[in-house]
Design a protein around this nucleic acid. Structure first.
Lengths: 201, 201
DNA sequence: GTAATTATTTAGCGTTCGTTACATATGTAT
DNA sequence: ATACATATGTAACGAACGCTAAATAATTAC
């Protein structure tokens, strides 16, 4: 919004927008969309409500910015995992990276995309849909990688890439639920290893 | 609370407590614990707030009663599934029953145990813990069935019942997330079938 | 300097939250 | 009939919700 211009006119922002967004992300991650109040957010961000609204618009827009940030933090690892030479390795790396990430005790437990708003009152219907859309985008990333694998003869001909991708996405979301309940990285890695045994052929 | 005594003194309750609880369950199921307001609940139950508080205590107690009801609705099917002669059949029936149940369009989508409060503000910490406890009870049901299977030689000796059970529970919770996003029974059954391919040996 | 522009603080807006006081209605016990 | 006990509807409580008006502070443009 307010420019990356070299010099902006008017009173300059007194807080670091990126850092504040990071704090907001942590709050949404721990408390969910509904559970995170403006008071929670402003306290964590170190600002007052008017500064939040001036910089980010409103609660929903701030949440979407936090979603963008969250995805950006994982994008590199996802791309690296999915670019493995074989589909099996790609999915294995994806599952193992997710186990490590979801079980990382230095950050909030679980997955923002899953737990921020699985359901809720009608005032968060839009957020629910947005999360569903982004989870579906992750599914499609996996599916496209598996489609490529089948074209390359890296998957049996009787294997449906979409079904296998749906299964992988399901395991990932299940791991997110386990993590939300406090599962450790080790436990999640065991789940991931077991899940990989369903690999075709 | 107020007795199942043949005749109770005082003004009799004007609403069907069981039916009202069923309506409350549906509201919590669709909106989650935080998202379900007392106004939502009383409207669905056809009563006023004082009647709700007199009959159920408060929002949290009502939610726990709804949890009991929810579990009771699935208990018979779980027991039936887990009493199958082999562990593989038991888990297969469990997954297939869950696919049908989670994808049933006549009821709210997803699983109350998963989506009612994966995270939230501190006022629903107790509810979060209660849900986690009950999910863990489901996990232990599966684990005990698999332990029995290993004692009976129905599982390979190098298979850890706890790890396999954790995997099954993870798939079930993942299916619940898919269902919350609108997945159909057919899709969930495909996921279940794929998940079963991870079965040991 | 003065004007213009933007950010910050304080304080509070209207609404909804979970919950309850109170008067009244409806039943049994005697 | 009177006393007692419980349920109900109305109405409202204090607190928290998301959000904003208004005054003030800090910067650039001229």
């Amino acid at each position: 919004m307010t420019g990356n211009k070299a010099v902006a006119i008017g009173r300059p922002r007194a807080f670091d927008e990126d850092k504040a967004l990071g704090r907001a992300l942590e709050v949404f991650w721990r408390k969910g969309y509904e559970g995170a109040s403006i008071a929670d957010l402003t306290a964590a961000m170190g600002i007052n409500p008017p500064s939040l609204y001036a910089a980010f618009g409103n609660k929903e827009a701030l949440f979407c910015r936090a979603l963008d940030r969250y995805e950006a933090e994982h994008e590199a690892s996802w791309n690296e995992a999915l670019s493995a030479p074989t589909a099996y390795e790609a999915v294995k790396h994806l599952l193992m990276y997710s186990a490590a990430s979801l079980g990382d005790k230095r950050r909030p437990p679980g997955c923002l995309m899953v737990q921020a708003a699985l359901c809720g009152g009608k005032e968060c219907d839009a957020v629910k849909k947005e999360l569903d859309k982004r989870r579906d985008a992750s599914f499609r990333l996996i599916r496209e990688r598996l489609k490529r694998a089948r074209r390359e003869g890296d998957l049996p001909e009787n294997t449906d890439p979409a079904s296998l991708a749906r299964y992988i996405a399901t395991v990932l979301h299940g791991m997110a639920v386990q993590a939300a309940g406090g599962a450790s990285r080790k436990e999640l890695e065991r789940v991931a290893a077991t899940a990989l045994r369903a690999w075709p052929e």
